[in-house]
Every structure is written in C-alpha cells, then in structure tokens.
Design a protein around this nucleic acid. Structure first.
Length: 465
RNA sequence: GGCCCGGUGGCAGAGUGGCCAUGCAGCGGACUGCAAAUCCGCGUACGUCGGUUCGAUUCCGGCCCGGGCCUCCA
C-alpha cells in the first residue's frame, strides 16, 4: 500500500517515493495578496491540505511550504485604486486569507515565506543565471531588465509539453523590444520611484513573477523538492519558468512530482468579476459552514473540473448531516480520537493513496455512516469512532454533533431558548392530544429551518441549511 | 492553429475487460398521532461509429460535443 500521484511532468500516475525516506518536501503556490481570496483559490488550499495530512500520516517528517506573493503589479494597482499603502493592503489581505482558510479547516503550512522577505535570495539566483549564461541584462533608458534566455535551455517546455516555436507562434502578446527572443521572460525589472523597489546590481527594481518561487523553495526546501503543487493554469508559464530557472541555476531536478488541481467554475461558467459570479471564500462561508465547502470540494477528484452550484452545496451538506447524525447516534468521542477499524482504514486509505481519490474516500465514509446507523448501540459507538477518525484525515467531522446541528441562524433565526420554549409548548399540546396545535408548532419551526425529531423520551431539534 | 482534459443512470460522482460504486432526488413498504430519522425493496447508466476480444462502459482508432491552457489567473 503506497501513495500514487499523477505527475504532470510524466502525464501519468507514478508511485510516490520521497528523495529522503523520512522527510518529504512540498511546495505549493500560494495567493497573491491584493484582494479577498475566492472559492477558486480555496480548491488548491483544500486539496493540498489533504495531501499534507496524508503525507504526515505516511512519513515521519513533512515540510509544507506555501508562499505569500506580496510584490506584484496587481498589488500595486489595487493599492493605488484603494488609495492605500501597499504594506497595509498586503497585511490586511494576508490576514483575511488566513482567517478564511482556517474556517475551511486547512492546517497552516510549516513555512509561509513572503516574497518581499526573499529579495536577496532572488537576486543571488538571478546572478547565478547570468553567470551561467542563462540570463542577460537588457534595456537602458528606463533602467535595466534581466531576462531569462529560453534559447539557452534545451529542456525548456518539458513540463507544459510545448516547444518554443509553438509558443511563439501562439503568442498573442506584444514582444517587448528589449527581449532577444520573444519567449524570454523577466527575472528582474526596473521600478519607478512610486513603485516598490529594491537595490540590486541592475539598479533599483523588483522581481519578475516566477523567480520568487524558485528562490523561496530553494531556501526552505533545498534545490530539489519532492512535490510542487498548484492550479493547472499555472503549468504554463509559471511552473515551466520555475523549472527553467531552478534547473539552469542548479543543474539538478527542481521538482520530482508536479501535482495540479483542476479549475472551478460557477454555474458552469468561469468565475470572473465581469460576469458577476465572483464568489469570495468569505461569501461562501455565509452560505455554508467551512466543512460543507470542504466536503463539496472533496466530492470531486482534484484533477477534474468542479462546478460550484447551490445544489451541489446542498448535497454536500446533506451528506455531512448524515455523518453527523451517525456520530450523534454514538457516545461522543473527541474529534480525531478513536481506534480505527482495520478494514475500514484500509479501504479508506487505499482510496486516498490512489492519487487522492477523495470521492471514493467519501463513499467509504458513507458506508461507514450506514454501518453506524444500522448498528446496535455498542457497535455504533465503535464504528462511529472509526468514521470520525477517518473523516478527520480529510479535515471533516471535526465538530461535536450537537454543536453541528445547532450552528447557524444564530443571529437572524430563532434563538435556542425560543426553540426550547416552543418545543415544550408543543409537547404539552401532544400530552393533551391537541395534535392540530402540535403540528402548527412543528410547522412554525420548520418554516424557520428547525426540524424536530420525536424520540423515545424526548424531542430533539436541528437546524437545516 | 498548437498542447491538454473530459463525455457514466433524474442529478452529483467514482470505477472496472465478464460480478455492488456511493450519495441525493423519485417510487413502494415498515416505523410514527403527524413528521423527521432509520430500515427493507425498486429503477436494466456508461457520447457516436468501427476495431481487438469468447466477452468492452472499461483497450485501440475515427468522428461528434464540451472544457482548459497558449496573456494576469488557483
């Protein structure tokens, strides 16, 4: 039983073996902090969080690095538009990002490097590339650019599987005059006084987009990393350029396994501000608890496209509700605690080992929940512990079941004491056999999203989404 | 134009050369004062045309349709 991952570099699934048997290094491209993170950003966060948890389970030590890009032209533009200092914007956005993904139960990475704190490392890397004739300095009037020479790298294009000629033929961008070759990309560019800049051998300037990941992964994980992750849209040019920079500078493999998550659409359309279907994580959390969003994301394999709809969200919630009902059936256990039954663990982990087949893993949890719901109380408790322990690996079922069903609607809906009062009133009516009144109260509550269940001795309630 | 993914039952979504995915929704039944929850039962799904095979949804090829990337993007 071992982990298999789809490697974009090979376009095939491969058994995963870390370079060092006891220590896995993983680098994932993090956000550019210029605006609130959207649900598309949430996908890689959740996918790689699950991979991180699985790796931690499998290996003694895992170092997960996810950067914060805090120098970028989009940031400059947003700060200007907001009339806000850049540092204030990036700080605020970073804090929001942290809060948002914490609500999605994502574990913090081991290292979260910021680009602005690694300018020295970037400059050093660029110097190596110049020394090795893989980069050149160009331009004059407005300052000096440093460009990567794509022609100097015969392996260029191996990740995205395209030749240099194809790229030039397909390029729809105007070629900057200082480029020796249309395919060359910027490592360093000059900054005007009103833009962020750092002193460098090429004058005051700022880094190009791609160099930060090469520099930061080198610093925190070494010249060769085991896993590099991100969204598919980053394969070209971002990841391709990272490979070029790092491998030309160091003469060794940059990343051994490239893992890319598929795109998220909203109601079948690409999410964009102009279409008006731009959903921030913050907005999504108003529609559903973080665990529901997480279950939604994990219900589709990470490499498949996923479509965000209210319908899908409802389904994810219904599924979690059922699991929580199973937990409620059993004696409460602490989140993450519990003995894992061997067969269930096997089947569950087997699914995850197969290129993170979370939909399959969730179906195993479905079956475990059925098992709990159908079992007698002693077995139910045992099975529930397994269910909870398995789910915990996915960052799900981390709440107490009672708490789960009572959450939400706290502000605008009925308060708990009000609900309890109505239930008592209804039970009085039932005692009197005044079922018309009892049903009226049931209806009143259900209209406000509270469902009652009459059990043997008592009436319990829960909120529905 | 180039590169890369997909097309599975009402919906979502795994998977497999011959046998169960799973969940939701639907239908019938049990249970319930009514419900809810739960349990039992039901529905003959794999875009299309060929090929390989004893047998293909699964392998190969053509075609049709959809999506992504090639420019900032998770």
């Amino acid at each position: 039983m071992s982990l298999v991952l789809y490697n974009t570099l090979k376009r095939a699934k491969e058994p995963f073996t870390p370079l060092r048997p006891d220590h896995v290094g993983m680098y994932v491209c993090g956000p550019t902090v210029y605006d609130l993170a959207h649900i598309g950003n949430a996908r890689p966060v959740i996918v790689f969080d699950v991979l991180y948890r699985l790796l931690k389970r499998r290996y003694p030590r895992v170092t997960y690095v996810r950067n914060i890009t805090d120098v970028d032209d989009k940031i400059n533009a947003a700060a200007k538009a907001n009339n806000e200092p850049i540092a204030a914007l990036t700080k605020r956005t970073t804090d929001q990002f942290h809060a948002d993904i914490a609500a999605l139960n994502a574990l913090p990475p081991d290292v979260e490097p910021r680009a602005t704190e690694h300018i020295g490392e970037m400059i050093a890397l660029i110097q190596i590339l110049i020394e090795r004739n893989h980069a050149y300095v160009a331009g004059r009037r407005r300052g000096l650019h440093v460009l990567f020479s794509v022609e100097s790298d015969p392996a260029y294009g191996k990740l995205s599987n395209r030749s240099r000629d194809e790229m030039i033929a397909g390029a729809r961008v105007e070629v900057a005059p200082y480029k020796k070759d249309p395919a060359d990309f910027v490592l360093w560019k000059p900054s005007s006084p009103d833009l962020p800049g750092w002193d460098s051998p090429w004058g005051r300037g700022r880094p190009g987009w791609h160099i930060e990941c090469s520099a930061m992964s080198k610093k925190h994980l070494g010249q060769t990393i085991d896993i590099h992750g991100g969204g598919v849209d980053l394969v070209f040019p971002h990841h391709e350029n990272e490979v070029a920079q790092s491998e030309c500078a160091h003469g060794q493999t940059f990343a051994r396994y490239w893992v890319h998550n598929g795109f998220l659409t909203v109601n079948g359309e690409k999410m964009s501000k102009s279409l008006g279907n731009f959903i921030t994580i913050r907005d999504a959390l108003k529609l559903a608890p973080g665990e529901v969003i997480r279950a939604f994301m994990l219900g589709t394999h990470y490499r498949q496209p996923i479509d965000w709809t209210e319908e899908a969200l409802k389904r994810a919630r219904a599924r979690l509700d059922r699991w929580y009902r199973a937990l409620a059936r059993a004696t409460p256990a602490a989140p993450g605690a519990g003995e894992i039954e061997h067969n269930w663990e096997r089947e569950f982990l087997l699914a995850l080992d197969d290129d993170l087949n979370t939909p399959h893993a969730l179906s195993v949890l479905d079956e475990q929940a059925s098992c709990v719901l159908g079992a007698g109380s002693a077995d139910a408790t045992r099975f529930a512990a397994t269910l909870r322990a398995n789910a915990y690996l996915l960052g799900l079922l981390t709440k107490d079941a009672g708490q789960w069903f009572r959450q939400g609607a706290a502000n605008d809906g009925l308060g708990e004491s009000e609900i309890e009062r109505l239930i008592a009133e209804r039970n009085d009516a039932r005692q009197r056999k005044d079922f018309a009144e009892a049903d009226r109260i049931r209806k009143q509550l259900s209209d406000q999203g509270v469902v009652l269940e009459d059990k043997a001795g008592a009436t319990t309630w829960r909120r529905t989404g």
